[in-house]
Design a protein around this nucleic acid. Structure first.
Lengths: 219, 219
DNA sequence: AAAGCATCTTGTCAATGTCAAGTTAGCGAG
DNA sequence: CTCGCTAACTTGACATTGACAAGATGCTTT
């Protein structure tokens, strides 16, 4: 019932997959991950409760696609903020801020993206999307070090151990700050604004990595 | 039915609260957070499906208590590993490892502990438990700096801005590594073992914090 | 012993994910 | 053109869940 809203849609909807994903975003926005249901998504897309099955299989398949789209968007936002930086300090700070801002603006997406147990471990689509985010972050670290950038992945190209160390150090910092802030743990830290603290911490880490690049295996 | 298993239990159970929490742990262990239900907990505790209500109110109340117990245990495990360290390098490394090991051994607890949207924001019990974990971590940082340790919280005692910076830098690193590893993101990092990388990253961060203590406001 | 109250049970309700079976329509082959 | 064919959707059903209301039970206190 109530098919009157936009009758030029082919009655095999035509763009149901896209419509369901948009409905999913809207459900996540105002009901959160714990209030997320396939049936509500179907309802908002104007289709029957079983319609999502054909496009995503089950709820895991749906969440996997949502997570992949989240990584796509995170990648884009990181690239944008990296591009407008004027120096290496600023680039690292912007990266941390963009990552944390993404988490703050898309809390439910962020939560889904980092819930391995909810996602399809075999999804090539998701692995690809997450891999691209990771490559962007890796290249931030490589530029800090003055090393050549990656074209694809750290698996395709051989990287030194000290590069791995710097990546883990940087990513842990960036991700940890974003996650702790999102989940309200930073409220235990007395500070005027968390952004100020993040800027100082990121700048120090950035400079440390540059000063200590190739800390053990470069001579 | 099936009350025969231990009939010395008073028939108002007597220790239902404790039994439910243990049942909760067992449900989390083999069904995960997404398969966690109050009714299954009640079933395993041998009581009716509505029994949990009197002790925890709703599912949020139950999860809040589980999260608080998680912080209690994390605090203890951190303290244990900190106590057996022989120097400041090792203390910082042990802290990072204990935090990550807790996440690896209690993945569902860890997930619940850092899901602000699932927990009761007004729970004094939870705030206390999380605060104690935070105090332990803060004292790790203060010892790195050679500063006097906190007795209670950073809110009770006045701390310098550079202390805040070091806490956020350290905690972000420690938490980020644990979370990324738990959620399988470290699989994108090529390395023989993640522990090796973590040890190197933690040692470097530890030494950097010591060398840079009071980096701006101490003269 | 009687009252009072925390504790636990039973029954119910709307909602959900998944599956099975049916319906519709776009599309290619003859 | 039209006759299937198949992907895209609907309908209906089922077991399960969280929450609530009302009732039963038994400890405790006076």
């Amino acid at each position: 019932m109530e098919h009157s809203k936009d009758s030029k849609l082919p009655y095999h909807h035509g763009a149901l997959r896209q419509a369901l994903l948009e409905a999913g975003d809207s459900v996540l926005r105002d009901r959160g991950l714990s209030g997320f249901t396939l049936r509500e998504c179907a309802r908002r897309a104007g289709v029957s409760h079983a319609a999502p099955k054909h496009h995503f299989g089950d709820v895991r398949g749906f969440l996997t696609e949502i997570a992949a789209l989240g990584f796509d968007q995170l990648t884009r936002q990181l690239q944008t903020q990296i591009a407008i930086a004027h120096d290496l300090d600023e680039e690292f700070i912007n990266t941390t801020r963009a990552y944390a801002d993404f988490a703050g603006e898309n809390p439910e997406h962020f939560r889904i993206m980092f819930r391995y147990d909810l996602l399809s471990a075999t999804s090539e689509r998701l692995a690809q999307a997450a891999g691209e985010t990771f490559t962007v972050l890796t290249n931030v670290v490589l530029r800090q070090r003055g090393d050549p950038e990656l074209l694809a992945s750290v698996y395709d190209e051989k990287v030194a151990e000290s590069v791995i160390d710097d990546i883990v150090l940087s990513w842990s910092h960036i991700h940890g700050f974003a996650h702790l802030k999102l989940e309200q743990q930073m409220s235990m830290v007395p500070a005027a604004t968390h952004d100020d603290v993040m800027v100082r911490a990121s700048r120090r880490l950035s400079r440390f990595i540059r000063s200590d690049a190739g800390h053990q295996d470069e001579g």
